[in-house]
Simulated scan of single mutants.
Amino acid sequence: MNGMQIAIVLLSIASPLVAAERQVDPVAAAQLAVAKLYGAGQIAGLEGYQSGFYVEGEPALVVTVDSAALDGVTVSIVDAYGERYEGRLVGRDAASGLVLVECPAGVEPPSTFSLTSNAELSLSQRLWALSNCFNIAAGDEPVTLQRARLAAIASMPTSVDEGRPTVGAPAAGSPVLVLSAVTSNPGAGGGVVIDEAGRLVGVLGAECRSPVTGAWLNYALPADAVDAAIARIRDRTNAATADRMAAPHPNRALRRAGLGLIAAITKRSPAYIERVVEGSPAARAGLEPDDLIVAINGATVGTVEAAASAIERGLTRDAAVEITVLREERLVTLNLRGDAP
């Protein structure tokens, strides 16, 4: 074999290798669009980490599922390159269980998922699930990859967690993708499910049990529901901003009543009474420090902001509000009048 023949043989061997190197691995590309999130948690055994993924937006946006880790107003985001920055929670969507997080201005994510990929689904289709389950990828390590198949498209049942829907799970009856892989793991919520072409198929939901069998559900919210959830979050956020600008400051009614609530450290801080001014309308009504306000005029309030707003709307110098508090494991209903002390 002469030199020319040897060169031809070597080129014929090398060409496929060069071509293979130039091909983009859809799974590796998808891993670049998955983020690791760190927030609150570490309370009562709850994890303070989970998964999320980047979608197109300006500033950059991360989609994830609701959880105890998101009880603050910010959450730490770590991208595929190990870069860390603080994201701002834009809003939540109860119907889907999704949360939208805004990255700081100027952040360019390593990659993003398209919400208009229109990936077709078929039963037993081969899929991949990508997430930061068990916090294996803390820095620039790639997130965990699991092989799966689409077992069914079914309606979401409720959780058996104390008879209430699980935080971060879509509403009962919502269509979900049932997966053959064990994806219901700590930290997996907010991860993605992709097809073999790397297109977004679904979003891994929060850990949730079947109300019938008690078994953990391995499911994902279909990708076509994500865009609608983001639109709902943005609509509510814009409406809430307009309402806050038009509404009177809720602290005025509280100050007139001599009532002080705990600081709203998070958007879901419970409405505990911190102080009651001696001789004030609140004191005459029988309210006490450490009372937990659970209802105003018969309507349930779950947060400091909700309680303060309800008192502001209902309390005047001529009208009273009915306040139900939880005190030493019993409910007490009291009438707070708006008259001056």
Rank of each mutant, 00 (worst) to 15 (best):
A282H: 11
L37S: 12
L259S: 10
I262D: 02
G202I: 03
R199Q: 12
A307P: 11
E328S: 12
G106A: 14
A228K: 06
G45V: 06
V325N: 10
G39N: 12
P270D: 02
A229S: 15
A285I: 13
Q146R: 15
L46A: 15
V182W: 02
E288D: 02
N2V: 06
L254T: 04
E58S: 15
S96P: 01
N118M: 08
V226Q: 00
V27N: 01
A181D: 01
V55K: 00
L115F: 11
T64Y: 04
F113L: 12
T116M: 06
A340Q: 12
V9D: 01
D291M: 07
P270I: 03
E288K: 14
V276H: 05
A247E: 08
R234H: 00
E102K: 06
R313W: 04
V178K: 07
G187N: 06
I8C: 04
R256H: 08
R164S: 07
S51H: 11
S155L: 06
L326H: 08
A148H: 11
G198L: 04
Q146A: 12
N251S: 15
A247S: 15
A20W: 09
R164V: 10
F134D: 09
M156W: 00
T237M: 01
G82Y: 02
E329T: 08
M4E: 09
E21S: 13
S309K: 13
L200Y: 07
V201S: 07
R236I: 03
V63E: 02
G97S: 11
S124Y: 09
E322T: 15
A44S: 13
M4H: 13
T166R: 15
P211S: 14
G87L: 05
E322D: 12
R88P: 04
A223H: 09
P26W: 04
R126W: 11
I13C: 14
G338V: 00
T241Y: 02
K36T: 09
G198M: 04
G189V: 05
T324F: 05
C133I: 01
G205F: 01
A69K: 13
A29S: 15
Y38R: 15
L46I: 10
P341M: 10
R337V: 01
N135H: 13
V27G: 03
V178C: 08
I77L: 14
D235C: 02
T324R: 14
V201Q: 08
E196Y: 07
R147M: 06
S309V: 14
R22C: 12
P222T: 07
Y38S: 14
L32G: 01
G202M: 08
V193S: 03
D291T: 06
A188N: 06
R337K: 14
T64I: 07
G214S: 12
S67M: 05
P170L: 06
S180P: 08
I13N: 04
A299G: 03
E207C: 09
T213Y: 11
Q146V: 04
A206Y: 07
A299F: 01
N218A: 05
A228V: 00
L89W: 08
L130Y: 01
Y49E: 03
T324C: 09
T300W: 00
A29W: 07
E305C: 08
V332Y: 02
A264C: 06
L204W: 05
S122P: 03
L221W: 01
L326W: 03
R164N: 05
G173I: 00
A308N: 03
G3H: 12
T158R: 11
S124E: 06
